[in-house]
Design a binder for these strands. Structure first.
Length: 443
DNA sequence: GCATGATCATGC
DNA sequence: GCATGATCATGC
């Protein structure tokens, strides 16, 4: 048995040593599984999953872990994760999707403690094997385009990851496993796992009779991107700032600006006030000014939204989301849709309003993510939109038809259209959250 | 004064 | 050139 190019063979790969496993994994860089399988005879065990992760386990690492509460390399305490990368519009590599870790056991979670948790037992140390995702490429041809990363929960991130884990545990302990959302947390999230749809078997939860969809622990794509970025260069972040929880750090950073006039803040941050969305840019600049750069916002997957209140204290405008294409939503299910993804996001609301002299000031900032019931209502509006757009793209759910969301144009101008399901063009539209709905949140 | 339709400045 | 995060404009 030999590997190509006269490299060292399997004999110096020690299953009990993290370092040895990692060194062995480095030989994957720039190669694909097809570079190795010809020389290695591996029994393709019947009944084993055919997904790419298990192929890497079996064909390269020659392990057959199965379903175990222990990591894939139990003696080394190392869990193997294979995950895809794609190039963004600037050509930078980024995570194709969330990094799915172990399943959440709702029944046992409430009695767990962080340091002895099943999550840490399984996922404390990860060997991250990245490949470049190319649509329709055969699995054995996928290229491992960067060196695998040995990932241990960084001390500066541990408090946030622990807080995220506790958020998930507390929700399950409150009998709300069925209401879990990725937007509940910042780095570590409870992501959906399972086939979805009507036929899906729901799981039991300890403090409620209501069945809950299966979920797994996962690192958000934004957090995986930060792992990638970190691996490339030495950390140059201020550790004392970094280790604080996101909510505390941003709250503290923006505290000095509360009650200040918008005009003044814009001058301070050298932020032009011409654009319609300058307040959003302004908050990002103010955070950066206080040592909380936009990369950290991105790492937590937080979206900044601004809310402007009128004299009476209600929002002046509805809140817009990404424009959609008619053919796009027609081909999608709710859980694949971009509106669903948006509503599974943690938001930082910056609320502007008038002071006693009628001058606009920054009133407050608050974190928010959409509660379960309202996500169900948004789902209804989305399905309704999908159905009606098949016949008339200009008669879609209006603000008066729902307490939560509606559909309205969002285009550059009247020429900004896209193709309808029934042929012909209609002006580009988006989903919006109703301003009355926003009013109840910020009040 | 509100609901709905129309459009803008910016940054990548 | 286009997606983004919004605000403006109009008619009832």
């Amino acid at each position: 048995m030999s590997l190509e190019g006269g490299q060292a063979g399997f004999e110096d790969y020690d299953l009990t040593s993290k370092e040895s496993i990692w060194k062995f994994s480095l030989r994957l860089k720039g190669k694909s599984l097809s570079d190795f399988v010809e020389d290695i005879e591996i029994p393709l065990v019947a009944g084993h999953k055919g997904d790419f992760g298990s192929l890497v386990e079996r064909l390269y690492f020659r392990i057959f872990p199965g379903n175990s509460p222990l990591p894939d390399f139990p003696e080394a305490g190392l869990e193997l994760k294979t995950t895809g990368l794609i190039a963004n519009s600037k050509g930078h590599l980024q995570a194709k999707e969330r990094l799915v870790l172990s399943m959440i056991d709702y029944m046992s979670l409430p009695s767990e403690q962080w340091h002895s948790s099943s999550f840490l037992k399984k996922n404390k140390s990860l060997l991250l094997v990245f490949y470049k995702y190319v649509k329709d490429q055969p699995l054995l041809e996928r290229i491992f385009n960067i060196a695998p990363i040995l990932f241990e929960v960084p001390p500066e991130d541990e408090p946030q990851i622990r807080a995220d884990w506790e958020t998930i545990r507390n929700k399950v302990d409150s009998g709300l496993a069925h209401e879990l959302s990725e937007a509940d947390t910042f780095y570590l999230a409870a992501c959906r796992k399972g086939q979805g749809g009507e036929a899906e078997a729901l799981r039991k939860q300890p403090k409620s009779e209501i069945g809950a969809k299966a979920r797994a622990y996962s690192y958000k794509p934004s957090y995986v991107n930060s792992i990638l970025a970190r691996s490339g260069e030495a950390a140059n972040l201020n550790p004392s700032q970094e280790s604080a929880l996101i909510q505390d750090a941003t709250k503290e950073a923006l505290m000095p600006y509360l009650g200040q006039k918008t005009k003044l803040l814009a001058q301070l941050a050298k932020c032009s006030t011409v654009s319609k969305h300058f307040r959003s840019t302004l908050i990002l600049k103010l955070l950066a000014e206080r040592g909380f750069p936009s990369e950290k916002i991105a790492k937590a997957g937080v979206q900044i939204k601004t809310v402007r209140l009128n004299r009476k204290g209600s929002p002046r405008e509805h809140m817009s989301f990404q424009a959609f294409k008619y053919l796009e939503i027609d081909s999608q299910n709710w859980e694949d849709s971009r509106f669903f993804e948006s509503l599974e996001t943690k938001f930082l609301f910056a609320v502007f309003g008038e002071d006693a002299n009628g001058e606009e000031v920054l009133l407050k900032t608050m974190y928010w993510n959409m509660p379960f019931k309202d996500r169900e209502e948004a789902h209804r509006v989305w399905e309704n939109t999908k159905q009606r757009a098949r016949h008339d793209a200009n008669n879609l759910p209006a603000a008066s038809e729902s307490s939560v969301a509606h559909v309205r144009p969002k285009a550059r101008n009247a020429r900004d259209t896209n193709t309808t399901v029934y042929g012909g063009e209609a002006v580009t539209k988006a989903f919006w959250l109703n301003k009355n709905y926003i009013a109840n949140i910020v009040r």
